[in-house]
Amino acid sequence: MENVLFYIFAALTLLFAFLCVANPFSRNPVTSAMFLVLTMISMAGLFVLLQAFFLAAVQILVYAGAVMVLFLFVIMLLDIKEEERRRFSRFSIALGGVSVIGLGFILFKTIRESKAGEGLKLVAVKGSDTAALGKALFTQYLLPFEIVSVLLLVAMVGVILLSKKDLK
């Protein structure tokens, strides 16, 4: 069953992701954003299959629940008109397509050849992975954690500065 679920979630993830960046039917940013949300949720499914429950929850909570809402918020606030009045330059599409396909091919090949997963099995998580994560976060990774808090402060200050009205 896990295999089937994997293929379902994987297919959904990829499909949604593709539709997010290259939707042939709509170039509406809102559509892209919604597909991105769906991608995130399907990915959370993959996380669950990997038994990373905590991250699955965080993925939905932060990405789908907060980050993407922000995106949607901004798109709506700006009421960005669809791109369709502009035409893509063929050249850039071709160039982008070729380079990305090239990269994909290389990645595909290296993954295939390096046989990364050989001999590795998914080990069932014992107990709560959240507790283990939390412990590591506050011992071994305490410093990065604190740095990230500074980073969040910076982001906060930055956002306020960038978006507040001028008092003049």
Binding site: L14, A22, L46, I80, S92, L95, V100, K115
Partner: peptide, 28 residues
């Protein structure tokens, strides 16, 4: 399903993301 399959998905996802950055012109 093993690690390899997950990596494939991840790799493809990465490529799609890059595609979006390279081809699309809308900042958002």
């Amino acid at each position: 399903v093993g690690l390899e399959q997950y990596l494939m998905v991840s790799g493809l996802l990465f490529c799609f993301g890059l595609l979006g950055v390279v081809v699309r012109r809308n900042l958002i």
